[in-house]
Design a protein around this nucleic acid. Structure first.
Length: 411
DNA sequence: CCTCCACCGGAACGTGAGGAGT
DNA sequence: ACTCCTCACGTTCCGGTGGAGG
């Protein structure tokens, strides 16, 4: 027994009557066995891939759809099934999944593919064509159909379409193996940047995933909730509310699942018996705040200083400061932390950027005789914004600055 | 009705980093 | 190793603007 008089400090959190049965199924990385409202897409992908089971090369496929429309889940699901059936029928099919957001260069794609077929390739160092050769040798030893799923393929294209060109014509250089590609993109127009030959080869078949509506999102959540939560811990309104919030967010199932999971986590942390609509609203708020914090954290330094100027003015009870006022404070802060201020022209652009991001609100107002300017207000919570900004080491010594000037402003 | 404030925002240009080609 | 090109970020310059006050 520890000095606190209980077993372990984790006991309280390991308590048996947890709300969750299995939290993993509520993550969007989980591939469920049943995907509601995607039968049509599953069927068409299966139909396109079915030649693989006769040892023939399936057409390449491009899958489009916004985030959280089930593209990845469907592709992986069909891939898994194909491998299973192939194994039973003794027709070897390999499905390789690559996320191009992480694996985003030609070299890394080829190195990862080689690794999948047990060819160790150093993460860096070899000439690209040697890795390509290595990969071809690795797969061509056996008679097999290989499906390569390239998720977020648009990220790959930004760095040049050479990989896609090579992969799409690899079949003509192979004797035994057959390769076909599934590209997944949430950008409908990304093929515009492609070489026409790659475009036509890659887009032999195109499938669009429409967004889910609120009712469909409810079905999806019900399905996962059965596996993820204990019986009866969800109040009636919880799932519909999650679905409604996510439906506003262009029918994003990922968002809906996040909401449900986070609502559950919040309830659990409170020690509540049930997940209520209030928890869902709190979860919605938390997701929004997390997003803002992330955006602010990754802002360039001058934008941070600029935002801090707005924060400073608002904490001195100046709401709707003009660009001129904000700029003067900004210059002052720059001097305080020893950096060169940018010109007003540049600041105008940075203000517009912050406006676009929804962090501040800038509206043009005419004050007649007294000119024409933008009135700037903060549209995110003041205190949390301030603390995020101050957590940047370059701004950290502004804590005193706030006090110094806010004392002055009392005059 | 005219002026003129205090800024907006377009255009052109400069600069350094990073990638591709050779 | 070298040049060339592109791109993001900034600056300089400047024409434009809606309405309070004269």
């Amino acid at each position: 027994m520890n000095p606190n008089g209980s077993g372990s400090i984790f006991d309280e959190f390991l308590n048996a009557n947890s709300i969750f049965l299995n939290k993993e199924v509520l993550r969007h990385s989980y591939t469920p066995d049943y995907l509601p409202h995607r039968d049509e897409q599953i069927r068409s992908i299966a139909a396109i891939l079915s030649p693989a089971l006769r040892g023939e090369t399936p057409s390449n496929i491009l899958i489009y759809g916004k985030t959280g429309t089930g593209k990845t889940a469907v592709a992986r699901y069909v891939g898994k099934e194909l491998e299973n059936v192939g194994r039973n029928r003794n027709v070897p099919c390999h499905v390789v999944y690559l996320n191009c957001e992480i694996i985003d260069t030609q070299y890394r794609v080829l190195a990862n593919l080689s690794k999948y077929f047990n060819r160790e390739v150093p993460m860096t160092g070899w000439p690209t064509d040697q890795v390509y050769q290595e990969f071809k040798n690795a797969i061509d030893r056996h008679r097999a159909v290989i499906i390569i799923i390239l998720d977020e393929i648009d990220k790959l294209v930004k760095k040049g379409d050479e990989v896609l060109y090579n992969l799409s014509r690899i079949n003509s250089e192979l004797d035994n193996a057959k390769v076909s590609l599934i590209g997944i993109s949430n950008d409908l127009k990304f093929t515009e940047y492609l070489d026409p030959r790659v475009r036509s080869s890659l887009g032999e078949e195109e499938i669009v995933f429409p967004p889910y509506d609120a009712q469909q999102l409810r079905d999806i959540l019900e399905e996962r909730a059965k596996l993820g939560f204990r019986d009866g811990v969800l109040e009636d309104g919880v799932i519909p509310l999650c679905a409604a919030f996510a439906a506003q967010e262009h029918g994003d199932a990922r968002r809906a699942l996040d909401l449900l999971r986070i609502a559950g986590e919040l309830a659990e942390r409170e020690g509540a018996e049930k997940v209520t609509e209030r928890h869902v609203r709190l979860a919605q708020e938390k997701i929004e705040i997390d997003r803002i914090v992330e955006v602010i954290k990754t802002l360039p330094m001058h934008s941070k200083v600029l935002l801090y100027s707005v924060v400073f003015l608002e904490s001195s009870n100046v709401r709707g400061a003009t660009s001129g006022e904000v700029y003067r404070v900004y210059k002052e802060i720059c001097r305080e932390i020893g950096i060169e201020p940018l010109t007003p022209r540049r600041i105008t652009d940075l203000i517009s950027e912050l406006d676009m991001l929804g962090i501040i609100n800038a509206t043009i107002v005419n004050k007649g005789r007294y000119g024409r300017t933008k009135e700037i207000t903060l549209s995110v919570p003041l205190e949390s914004t301030k603390s995020v900004l101050l957590s940047d080491y370059r701004l950290s010594n502004l804590k005193d600055f706030t006090q110094k000037l806010s004392v002055q402003s009392h005059f």
